[in-house]
Design a protein around this nucleic acid. Structure first.
Length: 844
DNA sequence: GTAGGGTTAG
């Protein structure tokens, strides 16, 4: 608006202008054809001004027909200056001729404003026209509706629609514009209604609705409508095809895309233009047919900027950053200059590669060409410098930005979190002038990455209280946090929330939900969601198999795996980790051996060190030490501390003291910082009664100044998560908990339980050790669960470490004595205690 | 006169 009302530069008066300066100087431009030619030849605003000057001399500035032609020419020039001039000339015309002007003149101005994006201005001019008592004609509405569409001025458009109905305009142009207006405002159904009620439709009618559907995310409907159109015998043009091809790209549906291409070839009528080529390249890239896209691109002899930008941005989005940058080499030969879109992709590619060298080059180009004024470009630079670990540079760009957008803040926060500085990210997040769902999602997923699960769920609560809509990304993070917390009530709430808010459950969210329920000890809900998923990739199958593994259901895990193979999903290394773990927990030795062999033999996956670790675990647990050692010896890589730790854990289970010492020695050499080893080893010595060795290990531990990771258990009561650490007395209801513990201890002792003191590492007297043992975090949580829930309610406890053997036999007895199901998750699997037994069959 | 391709952060 400001642009159009600014002062014009003074008109430079020149005696004549090109078209009239030939032989017939005396001849005036009275003939309309002559004026039309003169106008058509005007290339600059100065020439227009000169022409208007000349018209004034001839008195034509008061001639309605001449002025219409003049204003039309101004509009067609399409610059702010020409539009301004048209407006000024129009004002003068009205004043001099004492007239209100005509609808044609108003149409010119509305059209000019709309095409320059001055849509508010276009609406004002329309209103002014109506106020002046000038009736709009059938040309007015398309221009006006186009302006309304661009700024989604819904009520203005609807008002005009009723005016159109009253005036009885039923021409196809107006109706087409209405379809476009409604779809652009997100009211596809209204657009469809206009379409359905039309008596006569042309290719633009169909195309408008097809594009409307595609733009609003109804890509499937767009493609269906296209085929319906073809069936009706309407020939699509290049615009239609661009739309429908881009709809196929949105659907990531190559088959459909190729069907459309097949139609184009069959009909032979539509010649592929540059826009269609770009749309095709985009479609092939998005559908994963990179080679087809590249071939089309390479075959094109006169590549334009959009085509290059299309392939570049797609390369970046597919993670092919090098290929994206290689497209830049084509630019000089095609006489192309990178624009802001090109630069955006290039910077993004550098960020992906972590290439500060190329990144600085891009930055230089941006500065030399004044592109930093585009905030998207500056935002991309912030992201790039953050990803290249140049935090200072990123902050400098951020500080220098005159209008920081929410994306600038988001990029900064995401960068800080990526670089591990969650505290600074928190501070900046709280200082943001405005935030959107991405800001919250970034922060929540950052907290999850930092294992701050309770904080993540709390922030999610705040997010909702501020009225920020949670989306798929939010829910993936929250589901993951909930899974780690093992909070089943929260899990159920999350699932209900997703259903209630109709958050689309795609493959990623589905996978996250399956994993969440699996970790919360609800495998049937996990499988329910898994079975409902539309598509399942190897990750989805992996979490489902994991759901079986964590509950010790080895056979079902294997059954799922076979089902996966049957459906043609290619296994990867990760799924074998879960499978082997499932075999290990279920004691399925033979099956484990077979699966391990099938990795190389059938699926062509070479085992990584983690798979060897699984095998050592599997064999070690079964007491097959010789075979476990053979596996270690057969490894193509050096065994690491994890491998020896698996063996050490098995030694503990089977009281194999000699091999334990050997394994512990290997771990000391490989990872002297691992203090957990000392704990394990000390436990093994303690169980074997080798107290001198226990003392030695303890001494060594003391010298290193290391401490055991404190055990912690949590329990969810009425949606609140209570956390207990070993020996912790800080809980507000500690006195009742202590009383309950005492009662439990008495009852289990009466039932024949003898405390397994080997589980206490500290070198203290027996009585003290017994006390410490009775205050293990899982026992505290259990006692709290018993006093906080009604009789018969299952109790769910989540522990951060492996459950200790004393607590395990304690829990078995508690489940019997108090007639409760106890579901306890440790860092490895679930234990379901029921009527005095555990689902792990004491094998964990 | 109406319809169209490439754009940063989670």
């Amino acid at each position: 608006m400001a642009v159009i009302s600014q002062n014009l530069s003074p008109i430079v008066a020149t005696p004549s202008f090109p078209i009239l300066s030939n032989q017939n100087e005396h001849k005036t431009i009275t003939e309309s054809s002559s004026l039309a030619v003169s106008l058509k030849n005007c290339k600059t605003i100065t020439e227009l001004e000169q022409l208007h000057c000349h018209m004034t001399k001839q008195g034509l500035n008061r001639d309605h027909s001449a002025m219409c032609k003049f204003m039309s020419a101004c509009t067609e020039m399409g610059t702010f200056d020409s539009l301004n001039y048209a407006r000024k000339a129009f004002e003068q015309f009205k004043e001099d001729g004492d007239t209100s002007g005509s609808s044609f003149m108003y149409n010119c101005l509305i059209r000019g404003c709309s095409s320059l994006g001055l849509c508010d201005e276009a609406i004002l001019i329309y209103n002014h026209m109506v106020d002046m008592g000038i009736a709009p004609d059938k040309y007015t509405f398309p221009f006006f509706l186009s302006a309304c569409s661009k700024i989604a001025a819904f009520s203005e458009g609807v008002q005009v629609h009723s005016a159109i109905l009253k005036m009885g305009f039923e021409d196809v142009y107006t109706q087409n514009s209405l379809i476009y207006f409604y779809t652009e405002c997100g009211e596809v159904v209204c657009g469809r209604k206009v379409f359905d009620e039309m008596r006569e439709r042309n290719v633009v009618t169909w195309t408008s609705l097809i594009c409307g559907y595609a733009r609003m995310g109804f890509a499937k409907e767009a493609v269906d409508l296209f085929f319906e159109m073809v069936k009706e015998g309407i020939r699509p043009n290049s615009v239609t095809l661009v739309c429908v091809i881009s709809a196929c790209a949105k659907l990531r549906d190559l088959e459909l895309g190729e069907r459309v291409c097949g139609y184009i070839e069959e009909s032979g009528g539509v010649k592929a233009n540059a826009q269609m080529l770009s749309a095709l390249v985009d479609m092939y890239m998005k559908c994963g047919a990179t080679d087809a896209a590249k071939q089309l691109f390479d075959e094109c002899v006169d590549k334009n900027l959009v085509l290059c930008n299309t392939i570049m941005s797609n390369y970046v989005q597919t993670g092919l950053a090098k290929e994206a940058l290689a497209i830049l080499d084509e630019f000089p030969a095609q006489r192309l200059r990178p624009d802001r879109v090109t630069v955006l992709s290039a910077i993004s590619a550098c960020a992906q590669l972590g290439s500060i060298l190329w990144g600085k080059c891009c930055h230089g180009y941006v500065l030399r060409n004044g592109l930093e004024c585009w905030d998207s470009v500056s935002n991309a630079l912030i992201d790039m410098y953050m990803k290249c670990c140049k935090q200072e540079m990123a902050c400098k760009i951020f500080d220098h930005m005159t209008n920081k957008t929410v994306v600038s803040w988001n990029s900064l926060i995401a960068g800080l979190i990526r670089n591990g500085d969650i505290d600074s990210a928190w501070k900046i997040f709280n200082k943001m002038p405005e935030s959107d769902s991405v800001s919250w999602n970034t922060m929540i997923s950052g907290l999850v990455q930092e294992s701050m699960f309770k904080e993540a769920t709390e922030l999610f609560r705040v997010m909702r209280s501020k009225g920020i809509k949670a989306d798929r990304v939010t829910m993936v993070s929250i589901a993951s946090a909930c899974g780690y917390l093992g909070a089943l009530d929260l899990a159920k709430w999350i699932y209900a929330y997703i259903e209630k808010n109709e958050i689309h459950c795609d493959i990623r969210l589905g996978t996250a939900l399956v994993d969440m329920f699996a970790r919360c000890g609800d495998p049937s809900s996990a499988m329910h969601i898994f079975n409902k998923m539309e598509k399942r990739d190897v990750s989805a199958w992996t979490v489902a198999i994991g759901a079986m593994a964590i509950n010790g259901n080895g056979n079902q895990a294997i059954a799922l795996f076979n089902q996966m193979l049957k459906q043609g999903v290619k296994p990867d290394g990760v799924v074998f980790v879960r499978l082997l773990a499932a075999c290990s927990h279920g004691g399925l030795i033979e099956e484990g051996r077979y699966l391990f062999r099938s990795m190389t033999g059938i699926h062509g996956i070479s085992p990584q060190i983690i798979h060897y670790g699984c095998m050592v675990d599997l064999l070690g647990r079964a007491g097959l030490f010789e075979e476990a050692l053979d596996i270690i010896k057969s490894m193509p890589m050096e065994p690491n501390d994890v491998i020896w730790s698996s063996l050490l854990a098995a030694c503990r289970m089977h009281q194999n003291v000699d091999m334990a010492a050997y394994a512990a020695q290997r771990i000391r050499e490989l990872a002297p910082e691992r203090t957990g080893v000392h704990v394990l080893l000390s436990n093994i010595y303690a169980s074997a009664g080798k107290w001198t060795d226990v003392a030695n290990v303890r001494l060594e531990l003391k010298e290193k100044g290391a401490r055991k990771v404190p055990g912690s258990s949590s329990i969810e009561i009425n949606g609140k998560i209570h956390e207990f650490t070993s020996g912790d007395e800080s809980h507000p209801e500690m006195s009742q908990i202590a009383l309950m513990l005492e009662e439990m201890n008495c009852k289990v002792r009466d039932a024949g339980h003898v405390p397994d003191l080997a589980n206490v590492l500290l070198y203290v007297d027996e009585q003290e050790r017994e006390y410490l043992l009775s205050r293990h975090s899982e026992k505290l949580a259990l006692a709290f669960g018993l006093i906080s829930t009604g009789p018969g309610t299952p109790i769910r406890v989540v522990k951060n470490l492996r459950i200790c053997s004393d607590c395990h036999s304690f829990a078995k007895l508690v489940s019997k004595i108090y007639n409760r199901e106890i579901i306890m998750r440790d860092n490895n699997r679930f234990h379901l205690f029921r009527r005095g037994t555990c689902s792990c069959n004491d094998y964990w």
